[in-house]
Amino acid sequence: MYYSDVEKFVEVLYKQLNIQTPAELSISAIAQALNIEIIYAASVSMRIDNYIVLPNTSQQNIWQCFGHELCHYFFHEGDQRFMHSLFVDLQENQANHFAYHFCIPTFMLDQLHIENVYDILQHFPVEFSFALHRLEMYHNNHFSLYEKTASYLTG
């Protein structure tokens, strides 16, 4: 199986944290291991240095926001208030993409043999639309690999 750089990063991170299954996913345990302090606020999420502010909403939304903010923690520098809007858009798109892979890691999907969106919802604390999009990403990657392999073998 081919893993993207983001998928590899997430797998290595989880293995370094000794997290192998969805049941072991925990904001508090991950934050503690990374020396990040979590603060819950009304309805906003953001990262400031080693602090991550998460919205006081559903567990699913909090988990998704945590994944998003961790991308900023690992890969982004600077204050978005002073950045060009295109650069802010780039960072936000990267963080959204990262969140899908962090919240529902590919290596765990491979272990679970996920077949539909309800299988994802059974194992991962995410919202339906988030799970559905992640499943599409997962299937598109598998289909893409099948196409590449088939064209190589036949062509």
Rank of each mutant, 00 (worst) to 15 (best):
L13Q: 10
G78M: 06
D5K: 14
Y118R: 15
V53M: 09
S28A: 06
E37I: 02
Y73K: 05
E115T: 14
Y152E: 14
T106C: 09
F87V: 07
T154N: 11
A23W: 02
E115C: 07
G155E: 08
S129W: 00
K15M: 09
A23P: 00
L132K: 09
Q111P: 01
Y100C: 04
Y146L: 15
M46L: 14
T21N: 14
Y138K: 07
Q59P: 02
A33K: 15
Y73T: 03
N56S: 13
V10M: 13
Q60P: 00
T149Y: 09
G78E: 14
N96H: 06
A150E: 12
Q111W: 00
M83K: 10
F9L: 10
F74H: 06
T154C: 06
H113W: 04
Y138H: 13
F102Y: 15
L112D: 02
V12Y: 14
V44P: 00
Y146T: 12
Q32G: 10
E147G: 05
H133V: 05
Q32S: 15
P55K: 05
F74R: 04
H101P: 05
A31N: 05
I120L: 15
D110R: 01
H123W: 10
Y138L: 03
S151W: 10
F102S: 07
V6D: 15
Y73Q: 05
H72Q: 13
L70Y: 08
M83V: 03
R47F: 08
Q60G: 02
N96V: 07
N96G: 11
F82E: 11
V88W: 04
E69K: 07
Q20C: 12
Y14V: 00
L86M: 12
Y40D: 11
Q80Y: 08
L86N: 14
S4A: 13
H68Q: 10
Q16S: 11
L153A: 08
D119P: 13
I19L: 10
I104W: 07
D5N: 15
Y73I: 02
K15S: 10
T149P: 01
I120T: 05
E77T: 13
L109H: 03
F107E: 10
F124T: 02
Q32T: 14
K148S: 14
Q16H: 03
H101A: 06
H139T: 06
A41R: 08
V10G: 07
D110V: 03
Y152C: 07
V10L: 11
I104F: 06
S28K: 02
V126E: 13
A23S: 15
L135D: 04
L112H: 00
M137D: 11
S58Y: 01
S151H: 12
V44Q: 13
Y40G: 08
Q60M: 02
G155F: 05
C65F: 06
L70R: 13
F124L: 01
L86W: 09
F74G: 07
Q16E: 14
F82G: 03
G155S: 08
M108P: 01
Q94D: 15
